[in-house]
Design a protein around this nucleic acid. Structure first.
Lengths: 333, 333
DNA sequence: TTGGGTGACTAGCGCGCGCAAGTGGCGCGA
DNA sequence: TCGCGCCACTTGCGCGCGCTAGTCACCCAA
């Protein structure tokens, strides 16, 4: 319990001095340096003394000497993280920690002028959840980071996580007998990429089912914007809407109800993400649940394989997507 | 990709060599070191050459040399961040960046065994949004961080951010004529503290208005849990509910509607946080908007005052709270 | 006895940078 | 003419650590 020093931190040199051995030996013990033979007795003494003095390696010094920061930066998208995802990030963090790496999450803001974290932390790896935003790859590489996941040079990295939600949405509505289905995106520029991707996937499903290109609108999350879209779609004979996410779906449902339409009889609406809140309101929103079980460990394994000699993780991410059928979708009429 | 040599980073020494001057001069220019006089011509040449070579300071080396990491760690609570808050964190990040500091946000997970980020990053300051969790202060100090905000040694830090939302909720319901008002908390253990605080504040308002202690329930976010609470409250003559947040409020509204009650005629419900989604569904949720304008800059100023010789920021956080009256509250009957 | 091999260490450099202390030249007042 | 102060730099140390290149004692085969 003796709080030896309140000013100077304990260094490896302190351990060496106190034990009367050289700094190198201490380093070898503490790092389990391969190719070095240290007697069991000395090893024990070093470990015990480190414990006794409360030694903590100075990561800045370590980073400087080794050239590796042992930091893994996870770039998060700008939208709210769902519950599962958060749990899985935690798992990734744990797995990496066991390997001596720290996981730091970061949400770049396009509006912010501040220097991105990859410039400051000089992480060994930068991970992204989905694909890279334009310009990001260049910025990260300019900061000296060579390991990016997913690999931006790999052909068609886009389908890394395959975004099958929109497929399920459209098929679900089609099974109910809907033939004129609209896709509702978000006008939020920050998520334009993902909106576009989901729209594309929805159109893939539409084509498979013999429907034409889906009518589309990018909504603001306001009643006015949603009302306008609903009115327009109804006039065009649309009976069902696949929404980019639950927020957009909620806007449409609310607007439809306030316009006097019945959901789902007049208009079926299906969301995406399975937000808790969306399951509570009346009508309870049909949606797509994204099961992220295992994603965390998978991410960690990916990062480690990039930075050490570990093999690539065998299984793909368990990013299974499932339909959650509730009350906001049904047959037309 | 075999550019082992070409990958070497540009250092201050490279600039010096290329310009035929000493490394110290380069450092003085790049850091605007006070007390050093550098001719305008040299300054320009250094700056230009740094730009030309694409020089980026190696923060690990800087941290090692200066003894300061120039990292500010913001400890975030475990609950989802609302939109405004996120924007303000971004603002704080910007303000700190201008002063040469990096803001890193971190959510410690009680379950996680991984080493907390303050041990790894050795930040100059650790900020918390609310109060410190038990054990956190010791852990942070053990990691060698001396500057904590809010100061854990200051008496009664609890009312740092004064939580006036519940007051507005109860007063609003009271004005409509409600006299038997319930408080709906959340059973989520991670937010037990904040739930308790808001309940306490709601009861303060109730007492002021001459109401007795509010009936209370801590809900799971499930229909069963919400239905049970609504049924119980209705039997007890409750006509209005102040909810911990919009999620809980949504659960109650949904359950009430499905039980055949009319909102707000049979049961008024008011949420807290002004979640976008809550304003979309029908009935549109009355709620409390937390205006965090200025919070970000305030946090940044706090951090800077702790770490440099700047004076403490003058104004308190502009954590103004406002009633958002929509369709889920009204007179009883 | 010699020589090579090996186990158990030590000496010390270099990572990139901040910064204290020093150095030389030049203008200026006495 | 000398001396002094000031400007515009340079020299060089040290931050804590990883790691290469030794050193040295000891053992065993020849």
């Amino acid at each position: 319990m003796s709080q030896t020093t309140s000013t100077r931190r304990v260094t490896a040199a302190d351990i060496a001095r106190s034990l009367g051995i050289s700094r190198a030996t201490v380093g070898f013990v503490l790092n389990d340096t391969p190719g070095q033979t240290i007697s069991a007795a000395t090893r024990r003494r070093v470990l015990d003394e480190a414990e006794r003095l409360g030694y903590r390696p100075h990561i800045a010094a370590r980073a400087l000497a080794s050239g590796r920061s042992r930091i893994v930066l996870l770039v998060l998208p700008d939208w709210p993280l769902d519950f599962n995802l958060r749990r899985n990030i935690e798992e990734a963090s744990l797995a990496l920690d066991e390997a001596g790496y720290a996981l730091i999450t970061y949400t770049p803001h396009p509006t912010g002028q501040s220097r991105p974290l990859w410039e400051i932390l000089q992480p060994d790896v930068v991970l992204a959840m989905a694909s890279w935003a334009p310009g990001q790859v260049e910025s990260i590489r300019a900061a000296g980071v060579t390991r990016l996941i997913p690999d931006p040079d790999a052909p068609m990295g886009e389908e890394e996580y395959s975004e099958d939600g929109p497929l399920l949405q459209v098929r679900h509505l089609h099974e109910f007998g809907h033939r004129t289905i609209a896709f509702a995106g978000s006008a939020d520029p920050r998520i334009a990429d993902l909106v576009a991707l989901r729209r594309r996937r929805a159109n893939v499903a539409a084509a498979e089912l013999g429907l034409g290109a889906l009518p589309t609108a990018d909504l603001e999350l306001t009643d006015a914007s949603a009302s306008a879209a609903v009115r327009r779609w109804r006039e065009a004979g649309v009976t069902a809407v696949a929404a980019y996410n639950d927020d957009v779906a909620a806007a449409i449902v609310g607007a439809a109800v306030r316009l006097g339409f019945s959901v789902p009889a007049d208009l079926s609406v299906i969301g995406h993400d399975d937000t808790p809140l969306a399951s509570m309101f009346e009508p309870r929103l049909s949606t797509i649940n994204v099961n992220t079980v295992g994603l965390g460990r998978y991410l960690a394994a990916l990062a480690l394989s990039a930075v050490e000699e570990r093999p690539l993780p065998t299984a793909g991410p368990e990013l299974r997507v499932a339909l959650v059928e509730r009350a906001s979708t049904g047959p037309p009429g």
